[in-house]
Design a protein around this nucleic acid. Structure first.
Lengths: 226, 226
DNA sequence: CGTTAACTTGATGGAACTCAAGGTTCGTGG
DNA sequence: CCACGAACCTTGAGTTCCATCAAGTTAACG
């Protein structure tokens, strides 16, 4: 798979904004006050190999994290929606790249500070542990998808997951382009596109305008073995 | 992919043995005293959906954890060697099945007890957090492998990983059969077998007696893009 | 409204899967 | 110690699903 040269965000209008959300708690702990920051579409939030100074919480918009091989093959490891935390690392450096999918606001927390507080307050450390376990479970579910599911199952499972995270109404706008979906599901954009068409042909969903979809929950679910 | 009926351990000689290793610490915390227990080859340690009462540490032998779809497709999510912990769950029930690869001894810890101690001692909770982050990193690396790597790269990366975990001498016996390797790498046993042969043909490894391999480190590494 | 990126569709090819033997290893009992 | 059987592993032939290559078409945006 050949991939065009690395897409780097050009826009760098990183506009700090008022502390409206500054009171936003870190898992219900008032001592964590995040610094609000905004990123433009496709702007990099942190890069693979950089020192992991901060941890992030999405306030508005969406973020993707990915890993990339030297020849350009990319695996998107997660999409992060409002409320989600990302950027935790086991080591001192990031093992991922994080980029905004669209104009996105986040709260930034200092990793050192979080670790300092966790080292003293057991209930905070337990919350962080729990958070990591939740991510781990997601990663393991995704391994099953990547290792053993067909293209149709992957796309169907993905759409059901996004729907659930966006409110579960069955109608929503996908916050990411096909390339990101493909790289998340271990497929190519062509296969994702064809699978969308196929699902629409089978009456499992309807599309309007590329990004908007309306799922037929029952038929969709029937496509995903479990 | 059709799979033979679920392989259930028939042998159930779960023989508790003396407390020789009872002094084995839980990440250096003397208050955790595990109960030693032994499992026979292919014996189930815990099953998907069961209540997650315990957490385990491998003392001797090897364990695999996997997830399985209703039609039998299986994804092995990890192999656990002496010193490794497994069986932590985010929720109250296990989301995996764990089975002994060979005669295996483990130490069992009560999850409730660990949680009780973590809730009070921050440094313990931080260790557990760190452990979860390490597992998460492994899972994310594996996603990249499953989503984007070729069969040859998967097998080569796998062999290098096992070698490193078994001492890094380059010569070792694989503790698992081809089926488990295949289900770990998202391949079929035939493809794994063919890839072994291909790697041997290219001089990247030598086999003797099915399970024993001797890796040619340089050539092996060259096959794994990063 | 024009330009560009994003998405879709078609034709073709190939890596890995499936099906089917055959060979090897290893444990068990004669 | 050797013979037998049952897993386990390897190899071959044919097929399939998804990737690749190549146009088109639609949508987004200045």
């Amino acid at each position: 798979m050949v991939r065009p040269p690395v897409r780097r965000a050009t826009a760098s209008l990183r506009t700090p904004f008022p502390t409206r959300d500054g009171a936003g708690l870190f898992s219900g702990c008032p001592e964590f006050v995040g610094t609000p920051l905004a990123y433009a579409r496709e702007e990099e939030i942190f890069g693979d190999g950089e020192e992991a100074e901060s941890v992030y919480r999405v306030v508005h918009g969406a973020v993707r994290t990915h890993k990339i091989l030297s020849d350009g093959r990319r695996q998107v490891t997660g999409f992060h929606l409002p409320g989600d935390l990302f950027g935790f690392e086991q080591a001192e450096t990031h093992r991922h790249t994080a980029e905004a999918l669209s104009g996105t606001r986040v709260l930034i927390f200092k990793r050192r500070q979080i670790e300092r507080i966790a080292a003293v307050r057991a209930e905070v450390a337990c919350q962080l542990w729990s958070l990591a376990k939740r991510s781990l479970r997601h990663a393991q579910d995704h391994m099953l998808l990547l290792g053993r599911r067909s293209a149709q199952e992957r796309v169907a499972a993905f759409l059901l997951d996004v729907d659930a995270r966006m409110g579960g109404t069955g109608t929503f706008d996908l916050p990411m382009p096909r390339r990101d979906i493909a790289d998340y599901l271990g497929l190519t954009i062509e296969t994702v596109s064809r699978t969308f068409s196929q699902l629409e042909g089978e009456g499992a969903l309807q599309r309007s305008g590329g990004r908007q979809v309306c799922l037929h929950h029952d038929r969709m679910h029937r496509l995903v073995e479990d």
